[in-house]
C-alpha cells in the first residue's frame, strides 16, 4: 500500500448492505464512497472517478442498467462489479454484455466479494502485459508457445479447445458470458450447445475429475469462469 488507497464506489439503496460493505471493505484498506441512487453515484463519479464500482441493479431513481450503459458509453473505464439476485440470470448476462466486469449474487459472502473485486482490479492493472505462463493447480498454460500441460503432461487440445482455454485464462477469475466466449473463439458464428460440447471435451482433457470441475466452472445460465489463481 504505497500511495493513495484504492477507492471503491458502492451504489446501493439499502443502508444495511452499505454498512456491511463499508465495514467489510474497510478491513482490507479500501476507501469506500457510498451512493444511494444513480444521481448521487453520478455526482460522486464526477467529483472523482473511483478505482472500482459496486453497483446494485435495483435503484430507486433509475435502473442500474441505465447507469451501466451510460458509463460505458462515455470514457469511464473503471471496473464495475454488479450485485444481483440469484434468480436474475438474464439481468446478469445483460449487465455483463453492457460492460460490467463481473457480478456477485445476493446474498454473498464477503470473501467471495473481495475475490471478485481483486480479480476486477487486477485485470485493469495488467491489461497490457499478459503473463506468459499461467498456472493454476496442476494446470499450466503457456500463451506464447500455446502449450498446455496438466501435472506436467502435455494436454492435447484441439485448436478450438485451446482458444476457449486461452480466453478463459486471459480473464482468469472473471465470469465470461457464453456469447463473449463464442465471439472470441468462433467470431460469433456458433451456438451455445456447440460451446458446451467443447467445454466438456476441454474438461475431459484438463480436469482431474471432469464431473466436478476445479478449473473451468459453470456459471449456470450465464457462462463460464476460470478459477482465479491465488
Amino acid at each position: 500500500m504505497s500511495a493513495a488507497p484504492i477507492r471503491i464506489l458502492v451504489v446501493d439503496d439499502e443502508p444495511p448492505i452499505r454498512r456491511l460493505l463499508r465495514a467489510g471493505l474497510g478491513t482490507q484498506g479500501y476507501e469506500v464512497v457510498e451512493a444511494g441512487n444513480v444521481a448521487d453515484a453520478l455526482l460522486a463519479i464526477a467529483a472523482q472517478p473511483p478505482d472500482v464500482m459496486l453497483l446494485d441493479l435495483g435503484l430507486p431513481d433509475r435502473n442500474g442498467m441505465d447507469l451501466l450503459a451510460q458509463l460505458r458509453a462515455t470514457d469511464a473505464d473503471f471496473p464495475i462489479v454488479v450485485l444481483s439476485s440469484r434468480t436474475d440470470e438474464k439481468g446478469i448476462v445483460q449487465a455483463l454484455e453492457l460492460g460490467a466486469d463481473d457480478y456477485v449474487s445476493k446474498p454473498f459472502g464477503m470473501q467471495e466479494l473481495l475475490a471478485r473485486l481483486r480479480v476486477a482490479l487486477k485485470h485493469r492493472l495488467q491489461q497490457q502485459g499478459e503473463r506468459p505462463i499461467f498456472r493454476l493447480g496442476g494446470l499450466s498454460v503457456d500463451l506464447v508457445r500455446r502449450i498446455v500441460t496438466v501435472h506436467g503432461r502435455d494436454a492435447k487440445l484441439s485448436p478450438r479447445e485451446y482458444d476457449i482455454l486461452r480466453v478463459l485464462v486471459q480473464h482468469a477469475g472473471k465470469v465470461l458470458t457464453h456469447r463473449l466466449i463464442i465471439r472470441e473463439v468462433w467470431g460469433g458464428i456458433a451456438d451455445i450447445q456447440n460451446l458446451r460440447v467443447h467445454v466438456r471435451q476441454l474438461r475431459q482433457k484438463i480436469e482431474d475429475d471432469p464431473e466436478r470441475p476445479a478449473f473451468v466452472l459453470t456459471e449456470t445460465g450465464v457462462g463460464y469462469r476460470l478459477q482465479a489463481p491465488d
Partner: peptide, 17 residues
C-alpha cells in the same frame, strides 16, 4: 423454461459446487 441442449454433468457440477 428457457430450454436449451445442456450437458447433465455440466449442470450437475454447478449444483455440486
Amino acid at each position: 423454461p428457457n430450454a436449451a441442449l445442456n450437458d447433465v454433468s455440466d449442470v450437475l457440477g454447478a449444483a455440486l459446487h
